[in-house]
């Protein structure tokens, strides 16, 4: 028992790292995704198609591969090695954040786009026929519908991101997974450290879910949830 508590104590040292990897890449990814999706929606055409294809490719490549390219590959490039960029890319922690945010952008922009195009056109027409401007229409008809449609898939995406942070340990970042793996290698206890790490991830996911759903209830959609409850 004391051994387990010792492990727990040691592994929890990685919690801040895991959480900050998760939250920072979440925010950066979301902001970038909003810009990317808004661009595709606002300026449809060849360029938007190119952006979409790029996002498609990012979604199609394993995160681990992207991590390796950035962490092992970028230092070989002179314009990174010899400029201010090196301060960022020399740190495995920031490499991980950049990769996570990059992939998160690709997935989230597609969720945003999907939510936008699912907006019932009747809602837009109702707003228009009341004389609302296009910005007002966006605010009262499109945005709420996007929240209604986009939140469930976004919740799933956020939880996937939370667990993807574990890959950062492959480039020497000491997060939850990093500490658990170190204990495993040092003590040859396999199950205990990994199970403890698993439990910590589950708790994180549960808390994330709770926060997201109360956020959803707060900002959205009075009518929509009451409808579900009925």
């Amino acid at each position: 028992m004391t051994v387990l508590l010792g492990y727990l104590h040691e592994i929890l040292q990685g919690l801040t790292t895991t959480l900050s990897l998760f939250l920072i890449s979440l925010v950066i990814g979301f902001v970038a995704a909003t810009i990317v999706a808004a661009f595709q929606i606002r300026f449809p055409g060849v360029l938007a198609g190119a952006v979409w294809s790029l996002m498609f490719c990012i979604r199609g490549v394993p995160l681990l591969l992207i991590l390796y390219v950035v962490y092992y590959g970028f230092p070989l490039l002179p314009f990174i090695r010899e400029t201010a960029l090196w301060t960022v890319f020399a740190s495995p922690y920031w490499c991980a954040i950049i990769c996570l945010a990059f992939v998160e952008m690709a997935f989230t922009s597609e969720i945003i786009r999907g939510a936008y195009y699912q907006t019932p056109k009747e809602q837009v027409e109702a707003a228009r026929s009341l004389g609302l401007s296009s910005f007002q229409t966006f605010r009262v008809a499109i945005l709420p519908a996007m929240l209604r449609n986009g939140f469930p898939p976004y919740t799933t995406e956020v939880i996937l991101l939370c667990k993807s942070t574990a890959l950062a340990f492959t480039i020497t970042v000491m997060d939850i997974m990093g500490y658990a793996n170190e204990i495993r290698a040092r003590t040859l206890d396999i199950y205990q450290p990994l199970l403890i790490a698993g439990a910590i991830y589950i708790c994180t996911v549960v808390v994330t879910r709770l926060i997201l759903s109360s956020l959803f209830n707060m900002i959205a959609v009075g009518g929509a949830e009451t409808a579900d409850q009925k």
Binding site: E122, A126, A127, R128, G131, S133, P144, G222, G223
Partner: peptide, 20 residues
């Protein structure tokens, strides 16, 4: 906008804003 100020429209599917 000027025309819509004079014209109200009611749809088959009501189209109320569900979050209001």
């Amino acid at each position: 906008d000027a025309v819509r100020k004079n014209v109200g429209m009611v749809f088959q599917q009501f189209n109320l804003f569900p979050h209001l």
